[in-house]
């Protein structure tokens, strides 16, 4: 099994962090993993994206050009990457932010009101984790135990108090 994931959105939405949690969770699950961010001018206020590969086999190119799963957290990202998703793949859209519909009919599209859900539950800024929860529910790419471990590994020690709120947000996504 190989899962190629592309996460994309604005800088500050936690795109890279959500990717890191996935990668760490995959590692805890005993999978081969890679995490590759976009870097350069785009990370200085513009769009950010991140390629994550989770596989049973050694990973070749870590740059995901044709994702199995696209997570789009802003309109430019959806427009840019929609057509790159493999047929039969999945697109998860934060529909609080993106009001446009996916045009393709050969992919599974999940519209998730992630930003609003997070905000309504006092978890402002945790839309990335809501989406991660949903992505986890869709793919079961690891056990819940390893997902939680992956989260704990990804949160720096000085921000350890954020683990619980992130877990809560993941839970919201899983139940959505």
């Amino acid at each position: 099994m190989t899962l190629n994931i592309l996460l994309a959105g604005f800088g500050g939405q936690g795109i890279l962090f959500a990717g890191k949690v996935m990668a760490y969770a995959g590692m805890m699950e005993g999978k081969e993993i890679s995490w590759l961010p976009s870097y350069g001018p785009e990370m200085r206020g513009g769009t950010a994206n991140c390629s994550v590969c989770i596989s049973d086999e050694k990973i070749g190119s870590p740059l995901v050009t044709n994702p199995d799963i696209l997570i789009a957290m802003n309109l430019p990202s959806l427009e840019k990457f929609e057509n790159d998703v493999v047929p039969g793949g999945t697109i998860i859209v934060d529909s609080s932010i993106i009001h446009k519909k996916v045009e393709r009919d050969d992919v599974k599209t999940i519209y998730l009101d992630a930003s609003s859900m997070a905000e309504e539950n006092g978890l402002k800024g945790a839309a990335n984790m809501v989406i991660l929860g949903r992505m986890f529910a869709e793919t079961s790419f690891c056990s819940y135990e390893n997902l939680e471990k992956g989260l704990r590994k990804s949160v720096p020690a000085r921000k350890a108090d954020l683990v619980d709120s992130n877990l809560k947000a993941i839970g919201l996504g899983m139940k959505s």
């Binding site: 890191k20 590692m27 993993i33 890679s34 995490w35 590759l36 740059l63």
Partner: peptide
């Protein structure tokens, strides 16, 4: 190169 420098792996 920039790819190997920026990417994370175990």
């Amino acid at each position: 190169d920039g790819m190997l420098g920026q990417m994370m792996e175990p």
